[in-house]
Amino acid sequence: MTKTWNGSAGVCFNDRGEVLLIRGFNSTKWAIPSGGIEKGETPEGCCVREMMEETGYPVKILKKLKIKTTVVKGYDVCIHYFLVEVNGSPKPLNDPDQLVEEAAWFSFDELSILDHQYPEDLPFLTSLYDEIEKSSL
């Protein structure tokens, strides 16, 4: 029987066009905030919960972006990506898994020089920047 893992990720831009990323303890690598879907939870509910836990920001979902499927350490992985926006004041980080050390906002130019936990997400983020830029013109 194949082992599976299902999760959600939130892509959040601020009004300056910066994207919100997280970095784990003892790591130089940055990633889109994400986490596993809990029993009885929807992908959307997971996204909102994980964003709060990992970044301290309450968010609301704007739209579903894509579903990424891959294999990691023998697990079939399915991650639902959502475009979200901040919906309230930030709170201190309260990551129950104690995996996230820092959440920070990055400009488009900074993205290309960051060390990425999941390098395959960089072209995806770049295409979203292009979409966001066009929609704000």
Rank of each mutant, 00 (worst) to 15 (best):
M51Y: 04
P58W: 06
V48L: 09
K39P: 00
G56C: 12
E50A: 03
T42R: 05
Y57W: 15
G36W: 02
G45D: 03
M52D: 04
E44S: 09
P43E: 02
A31Y: 10
G45E: 06
G56W: 04
R49D: 04
G45Q: 10
L62S: 11
E54F: 04
I67E: 12
L65P: 02
I37G: 01
V59P: 00
P58D: 07
V59C: 05
I61E: 01
R49F: 05
E44K: 12
P43H: 06
K63F: 00
K39Y: 12
E38F: 08
T42A: 03
L65V: 11
P58S: 11
P33C: 10
K63E: 15
M51T: 03
T42Y: 05
A31V: 06
E44R: 10
M52F: 15
G56T: 12
I32N: 01
G35I: 01
E54I: 00
G56M: 11
G35W: 03
I32R: 01
T69E: 15
Y57N: 13
K60I: 12
G35Y: 03
K66T: 15
T55S: 14
L65A: 09
T69L: 00
T69N: 13
K63A: 15
I67N: 09
E41S: 07
E54R: 13
T69K: 15
P43L: 05
L65I: 13
G56N: 11
P33N: 06
I32K: 01
M51F: 06
L62G: 06
I32W: 01
S34G: 15
P58F: 07
K66A: 14
E41V: 11
I61A: 04
T42I: 09
G56Q: 09
K64Q: 14
I37N: 01
K63P: 00
E53K: 08
E54T: 09
G36C: 09
E44N: 07
V59F: 04
Y57H: 15
L62C: 12
T69P: 00
R49N: 06
S34H: 12
I61C: 04
K68M: 10
I67C: 05
